[in-house]
């Protein structure tokens, strides 16, 4: 259980996140949608504490995340894996080492710095890569991989952390539709099979509808919608995206607009359509 209360973040006079409150039960898959600049990324980064909240609280169990420091903060980050739009791998290191870096907080700094990982850890890393279907790239430098492969390496690294929560900040924004589906399927699989809570920012409405059981809509730093995908009516969507009457849902979908039908009848339809191509 994960509870956010009145969380705010100011950048100078600008308010990025404004008094956000919600809670996420263990094992849920939550999608956050909204325009760029609505404060989605800032919210996720505050949960991982890559950004510090200006005010408010984040609680996980009995732990006040917003007040963590030093060693405890790093332990929290281990429990709360983060996946980035730009993958944030180390391009010059090989894929296996990149995955092994997920173990950094499980071992002493001295051992890590000497690049000494145990056989068990290496096997774990290979298993994670196998699960994501990219074990054949294990010894290549991460920078030489395609975007979709790199994002899967990042997910494998997140798995190595043995996290309780995975935060994904626009995980598919830089990917083509095929790779986007593979990555989202992997996240959904982790959520379903391992029971890890997944909170993901998405900028395409259709993806959120097809993968998430719960959707949060953000506009100008506030949560303006919190409910099931089926409750996302055109009115709600307009409110989230702050659009006028001529707003078309297609506009929120950047990756799939070539195959989108005029109206979106069934959640998940678009993804199936992509999978079929």
């Amino acid at each position: 259980m994960f509870e956010i209360r009145n969380l705010s973040r100011h950048f100078g006079t600008k308010v990025a996140v404004d008094g956000v409150s919600f809670s996420v039960p263990e094992g849920q898959m939550v999608g956050i949608i909204g325009r760029s600049g609505a404060g989605k990324s800032t919210l996720l980064r505050m949960i991982n504490r890559l950004a510090d909240p200006t005010s408010g609280s984040i609680r996980h169990g009995d732990v006040e995340i917003a007040a963590l420091k030093g060693e405890a903060l790093r332990r929290w980050r281990r429990d709360c894996a983060m996946i980035f739009q730009q993958f944030n791998l180390v391009p010059r290191l090989d894929v296996l080492t990149n995955v092994l870096l997920g173990r950094l907080n499980h071992r002493s700094t001295a051992l890590s710095v000497m690049n000494l990982f145990s056989r068990e850890e290496r096997i774990m890393a290979i298993a994670a890569l196998e699960r994501l279907g990219i074990e054949q790239t294990a010894l290549q430098p991460a920078g030489t991989l395609s975007g979709g492969q790199q994002q899967r390496v990042a997910i494998a690294r997140a798995l190595m952390q043995e996290p309780r929560v995975i935060l994904a900040d626009e995980p598919i924004a830089s990917l083509d539709p095929m790779n986007a589906k593979v990555v989202m399927d992997a996240l959904a699989d982790i959520n379903r099979r391992d029971g890890i809570t997944v909170i993901t920012n998405l900028h395409t409405l259709d993806t959120a509808r097809s993968y998430c059981r719960r959707i949060l809509g953000m506009a100008e730093g506030r949560v303006v919608f919190d409910g099931l995908p089926s409750e996302l009516t055109t009115d709600v969507v307009r409110r989230i995206y702050g659009a006028t009457d001529d707003f078309d849902e297609q506009m929120t979908s950047t990756s799939l607009d070539f195959s989108m039908p005029q109206a979106l009848p069934v959640p998940g339809y678009a993804m199936q359509a992509v999978a079929a191509c």
Binding site: F117, E120, I123, I126, A127, A138, L139, E162, D194
Partner: peptide
């Protein structure tokens, strides 16, 4: 998830021997 039994580990090690044994220079 990543909790593997000894047999599973050996199986993986057998499938990817070059990756399990780290390259000397690395």
């Amino acid at each position: 998830m990543l909790v593997l039994t000894a047999t599973e580990m050996d199986a993986i090690a057998l499938r990817h021997p070059h990756a399990v044994r780290p390259p000397f220079w690395a």
